[in-house]
Every structure is written in C-alpha cells, then in structure tokens.
Amino acid sequence: MPHATLEDTIRRLEALEIKTSFMEDLLDQLNLTIYQQQQLIDGLTRKVIELRKQTPEAGSGAARNLRDELPPHY
C-alpha cells in the first residue's frame, strides 16, 4: 500500500507543478496587459494635457464673437 501512496503523491505533485506553470504564464500575460494599459493611459493623459493647453479657458473673460459659434450651415 505505501507504494500506491507514493505514486499518488507523485501524480498530485506533477499536477500541482503543471497548474503552477499555467498560473505563472497567466500572471505574466496579465502583467504585460496591465503594463500596456498603463502606457496607453499615460499617453492619453499627455494628449489631454496638450489639448487643454491649446483650448482657451472658458472663464478667461476673453471677448467672444457669437458669429464664430454659429453652426456651419448658417
């Protein structure tokens, strides 16, 4: 009987090693995805900052011409 227990233990250990290997691969993929998403977020944040610098402030008090705000079909 001890021989069967040893085989069961080896089989269980191999199954755990396989699961661990798959989990490590999945973790690597998730880390890469998070890294890529953060790069995208950082790029979009820089774009928003650039666009805000180009857009005049709404409350700046600058004189506005209402004709500039008319839709193109007028």
Rank of each mutant, 00 (worst) to 15 (best):
A62D: 12
L27W: 08
P72E: 09
T20W: 06
R67A: 03
E7G: 05
P72G: 09
D68A: 06
E69M: 13
Q38W: 11
P2V: 15
I41V: 15
H3I: 11
L70F: 03
M1K: 15
Y74D: 14
L66K: 13
L32Q: 14
N31M: 05
Y35C: 09
L66N: 13
N31C: 05
M1A: 15
P71D: 12
D68H: 06
A63T: 10
E17T: 05
E24P: 00
L30R: 10
A4F: 05
N31R: 12
E7H: 11
A58D: 06
L16Y: 04
S60Q: 01
L16T: 03
R64C: 03
T45C: 02
L40A: 13
G59N: 11
K53W: 02
T20P: 00
R12P: 01
A63S: 15
L51Y: 09
Q29E: 04
I10V: 15
F22C: 00
Q37E: 07
A4R: 04
E14Y: 06
L66S: 11
Y74W: 13
H3F: 11
L32F: 13
T9C: 08
P56Q: 05
M1T: 14
P2C: 14
A15H: 00
L30D: 09
T5G: 05
R67V: 04
E17V: 11
L27I: 11
D25G: 05
N65Q: 04
L16M: 05
Q36V: 14
R12G: 08
A63K: 10
E17D: 10
D25A: 10
P2A: 15
E14C: 07
T5V: 12
R12C: 08
T5F: 03
E69C: 07
G43R: 09
Y35E: 09
L13T: 10
L27S: 14
E14M: 08
T33Y: 13
T9F: 01
I41K: 10
